[in-house]
Design a protein around this nucleic acid. Sequence first.
DNA 1: CGGGACTTTGAGCAAATTCAACCATTGTGG
DNA 2: CCACAATGGTTGAATTTGCTCAAAGTCCCG
Lengths: 252, 252
Amino acid sequence: MLSSSLPAAMSEPVRFHAVLSAKAHPCDTCPARALSICAAMRIEDLGRLATARVTQRVEAGATFIDESEPADHYFNITAEAVKVYKLLADGRRQITGFLFAGDLLGIAFKGGYAYSAEALTSLSVCRFPRRQLDRLLDDFPMMEKRLLAMASNELAAAQEQMMLLGRKTAHERIASFLLSTADRQERLGGSRDRVQLPMTRSDIADYLGLTTETVSRVFTSLKKRGWILLKSNSEVQVAERDALEELATGLE
Amino acid sequence: MLSSSLPAAMSEPVRFHAVLSAKAHPCDTCPARALSICAAMRIEDLGRLATARVTQRVEAGATFIDESEPADHYFNITAEAVKVYKLLADGRRQITGFLFAGDLLGIAFKGGYAYSAEALTSLSVCRFPRRQLDRLLDDFPMMEKRLLAMASNELAAAQEQMMLLGRKTAHERIASFLLSTADRQERLGGSRDRVQLPMTRSDIADYLGLTTETVSRVFTSLKKRGWILLKSNSEVQVAERDALEELATGLE
DNA sequence: CGGGACTTTGAGCAAATTCAACCATTGTGG
DNA sequence: CCACAATGGTTGAATTTGCTCAAAGTCCCG
C-alpha cells in the first residue's frame, strides 16, 4: 500500500538521524534537509551551518519556546509536528500554526518570541543561536532570500487563516483545515486523502477558533454526509474531496 | 493644540510632495522616507531606488491591487490609508490589514498577490517593479534585512490578529482595534488618544470578523461606559485607556 | 483490566447575526 | 440655497450559530 509510507516516515526519522549522525554529516540525513533554509546552501557550505547547530530533544507535550522569553534561537523542525500558540490573560488560547518537517520557528519581534511552542509528539529540533545565524546570513545571501521567501509564504498563510477565523462557518473551517493539512502532508510525501491528525480535538478547536464540542460535532456531521471517514481519532480519510473543497471555499 | 498636527499631516503631504518633487530629490520630501525600506539606504544610494520608482495616483475607493493579478510590483504607501482584503466566493470579505504611511505592500506568494488593495482616501503610492527591486536587494543587503524585519513584524501582527479573530469577544476586538490604531497613529506623529478612523464601520467589521451593526453597538456601549467619546464618525477619543487595555488583553 | 485523558452527544443558553426600520451627513442639481 | 437622494450609521426585535454545562462513551497505556 502506497499510503503506508507516510506513517512510517513520520514516526521514525528522528531515531534514524540519531544513529547516523555520529559518522555522516548531520545534515545529510536530516529528513528536512531539502525543505528548509538549509536547501539554499551548497553541501560544502553546510559545514558552517552545522557547527552552529545543536540537536535538541523535546518530549511530547513539552514547551520548548515560551511567549515571555527573549528570542535567542531559531528552531528547525526536522520531523513530526509542533504547535505554536498564544495565550490570553484568562487562559484562552489561540493556536497560530502547526509546524511540520522543514518549518522554521523563531522569527521574532522586538527581541521576544510572541508565542509559545509545544511538541505534539516527542521529537528532535535543530536549534541555532540567533546571533550566529544572523551572521551567517551576511555570507550567504541565498539563505537570506530563502528566509524572506519563507516569511512571505507564512504571511500569505496567515492571511488565509484570518479569512477562515473572521468569516468562515464552523463547517467551512473544518473543511479548510482538513484540506490544507492533507495538502501539506502530501507535499511531505504522504497520501493525498489520508490525513494524519497528531493534535487533539482541543488543539484543532484552538486553531480554528471553535470549541472541542463543535469540532467533534462537525466531524460527525461530515461523516454522516459521507464526505470523510474517521479511521481513528488521529486519522481522517477524505472521501468526497470536491464537496469539501466547495465547502472550504465558501461556494455554499 | 498638539493633536491638530496629525490631521494636517495626514491630509496634505501628497500635495506637498508633488509641488517639491520637480526640484528636489523625490524621496527627500517623501513623508514615509524614514519609515519604510528606504530608511535602510544612505541618501546617496537612494538614486538607484528612485529611478525604479513611479508615483501612482489612486483615487478614493479605487482598487489598485487585485487578488487575481500576477504580483509585478511592490507598493510603498507614503501617506493616508489603504485597506487590504480577501474575498470568499459568495462575497464575504476579510480585511487583513489597514496600511498607513511607510507600509510596504506587494509581498507575494507563488507569483500572485493573494489579496486586493483599495485606497480609503485619494492618495499617491510609490510603485516599484518587482524585478528591479529584487535586483536592487542584491546590492543593498541592508535593504533585504529591513524587508525581512518588516515581514517579521507583519507576521507577529498577523498572529495577534488571529488571537483577536479566534478568541476575543466583540468588545475585546473593538478595544484592541482602537488601541492598536491609536498606537500606530502615535508612532506616525499623531496624538495618543485621538484616533482617526478613515475607514467605514463596515470596513472595521470586515477587519474584526464582525458585522457593521455589532461594531456600531459596541461603540455606543463603550461610549455609554465613558471609555470613549465619538467625536465624529471618523474620530474616536480614548477617555479611559486603562479600562480599554484591560478589556483588550482579556483581563475580564 | 482499570483509570485517566480524550471524545462524543445532548439540552439549554447567549453572543452576535439577520432583518428591518429609522437617523445623520454629505454632496448635487434644480 | 435648499431639497433630496445616496451613502453610511444607529437602533430594535427575532433568530441562529456555536458555546456552556453535563453526562456518557472510547481509547490508550500502564
